[in-house]
Design a protein around this nucleic acid. Structure first.
Lengths: 354, 354
DNA sequence: CGCTTACCGGTAAGCGCTTACCCAAGAATC
DNA sequence: GATTCTTGGGTAAGCGCTTACCGGTAAGCG
């Protein structure tokens, strides 16, 4: 392991080749396991690589064979005001990212992460930068308007999460409709609640739209009274959820028997706001979420919600992207099943923990 | 925004050049803001880029100008058994990574993340892969033995976190000694505890070594009795901390008045184990941590600990790596200050929350 | 023992970009 | 109006790698 070698320029495959006394082609073959090098050649190359501490340049490799073995992931970094438990837990996005990471490793890919703040105004520049450095891109929800997505999809293989497939981009989402139907049914049929409110997520989110629609449809079908509209517009954040409840209360409006929130974070905010007003959950008002993020089961009371297979969503996103990259094909729209998780915030009795 | 263009091969700078009726050099100049292109030229190029939806290839760019604008970050993904709150929170590493991310963005760099599992046996292969794709690498604690670090540092600019600087690699850590001294002093002088135990982290961790040394030195200086040794060997995980306490208790050993844990996660495990035995914290035994991870203040009782500026550590790691990459210079060893955070697990009274 | 077949391994082309170098055309000067 | 200075922009080399192609040697065969 001689260290005296300190070539000023970077160490290249030529250095390895001359050290080993073979050609650069042989070095490349040995390193990539192509062809069938003679044992002698192989050994000399490996020894030279070891002695020199050679690491092939990823850029050159990528340029040459057209594969970077990198996926880009773009998501929003929370920057709004935070609620107690909100900033500190693995949220929806983190768990999905972990799934992507794990799936990527199986294929020898690495993950280029880029979080953008809410106030960043150069988002599309940043996404382009990522796109140029990766073989494909995974976009979390609400990163780009539909036209931007279509445009980008023409440039690089693209998977959106919780979006809508279209114009060449692929999409992974979960079965919002089935989840919402199950939830509403539980609230109305099992608990007998007659009035329900839907505290919406961002208006431009496909997830929010399908949850909202399924909510209304099912509630109407079961003859429950529905409260919604502009007063019920949240933004997926805990602060947004709390705000809606407070505004409603200050206006002297009567709350429904159950508040169905667009996601768990919103439910977190709602429960905070309710607690501050000494309104009992679920005694006076039941609250439900959507996602089943890790903190959901530690809320007071534990949150009844719909579990999305978050890690699996991430892994699936990578997998379809990968097959698109390597074979040119790939599912356009993958819908993953969800599961109703009954805890106590809906009014069900506590269960024994394992 | 014509879409009919669907060139089979990738879109290159040549396509843009011919579309704009200029040379590739001009396209490159406009895109990178070099030279002083005439307004006319500039416009034509930008229009062509827009029409074609051109995104320059990062690999080619990197190869050409020797800068990838990517930093690699390698860390361990937890895979051991988990305690209730452990898996679900932003831990030490996550917060540091966020700091890296934010600092990197300021310089137009992106972050290539690679988590390795505890059971992965191809770690150095993976690290090499990352190194080849990045301009520099940040390694979290205990990813590689010292020789491996020295070796890698010869290949790519390298920053270790909570390690030791040496042989060309840089390091960022926090002032373990000062923190530990302050903590021990608080326990002994303010609370009057006479016997202290140090529940160690991984034996091969530099952080653990310096905390352990400072602990003993300060405790001895203050004439407190010290319990340590092989029975007190943890591994930074909650499970490890709990195990030590249980083993001690089963062996009928008497616990010290205060248990100083190598990190917060360990303290979490210790408090679980103590609670299970109905031992009161801090009444019977005080417990302290180190790090101040986000959950620390939500434990029961809230954990007294040493706050490390985690996000700043990440940002600093990137910054010194960046200056090394761009100027060839860079601090070799950065030590960041820490702060004693007094909560209730040491025996102090509850404070009003803001 | 001479010819075919196989197989290793070397040479060189090119991946898409940046940039040093150089040329041409307009501005400035006498 | 001829000469020199200025400056935008084109040509081509080269970044470090992979791989198609081909030549040389050894093994297989009649």
């Amino acid at each position: 392991m001689s260290d005296q070698k300190r070539p000023k320029g970077t160490l290249t495959i030529y250095d390895v080749a001359s050290q080993a006394g073979v050609s650069i082609a042989s070095v490349s073959r040995v390193l990539n396991g192509h062809g069938s090098p003679r044992a002698n050649t192989r050994e000399r190359v490996l020894r030279a690589v070891e002695e020199l501490g050679f690491v092939p340049d990823g850029a050159a490799r990528a340029l040459s064979n057209g594969l970077k073995e990198v996926v880009g992931v773009v998501f929003r970094r929370g920057e709004e005001t935070h609620f107690e438990d909100e900033d500190e837990s693995l949220l929806f996005i983190d768990v999905i990212n972990r799934g992507i990471d794990i799936a990527a490793q199986r294929r020898g890919f690495d993950v280029l992460m880029s979080s953008v703040g809410y106030t960043d105004n150069n988002i599309s520049t940043r996404i382009s930068s990522i796109a140029g450095k990766a073989d494909g891109v995974i976009l979390h929800d609400r990163m780009l308007p539909a036209t931007g997505i279509a445009h980008l999809a023409g440039v690089v293989p693209l998977v959106t999460l919780a979006g809508t497939p279209g114009r060449g981009s692929m999409n992974v989402r979960c079965d919002n409709e089935a989840g919402m139907r199950a939830l509403v049914r539980h609230l109305v049929k099992d608990h007998g609640y007659k009035t329900l409110g839907y505290l919406a997520g961002r208006a431009d989110s496909p997830d929010n739209r399908s949850r909202s629609k399924a909510f209304e449809a099912e509630a109407n079908a079961l003859k429950a009274k529905v409260l919604s509209g502009p007063d019920w517009q949240g933004n997926y954040s805990a602060a947004g959820g709390a705000k809606v409840v407070e505004t409603l209360l200050e206006a002297g409006r009567k709350l429904p028997r159950a508040i169905v929130c667009a996601n768990d974070q919103t439910a977190l905010g709602v429960m905070h706001a309710l607690a501050r007003r000494r309104i009992n959950v679920p005694g006076d008002v039941a609250v439900t979420g959507f996602d089943d993020v890790p903190v959901a089961r530690h809320m007071h009371p534990p949150l009844t919600t719909i579990r999305q297979p978050m890690q699996e969503m991430g892994a699936t996103a990578f997998d379809i992207l990968y097959s698109r990259i390597s074979t040119g094909k790939g599912e356009l729209d993958v819908v993953l099943p969800v599961q109703l998780i009954v805890r106590e915030s809906c009014g069900c009795p506590p269960r024994l923990r394992a």
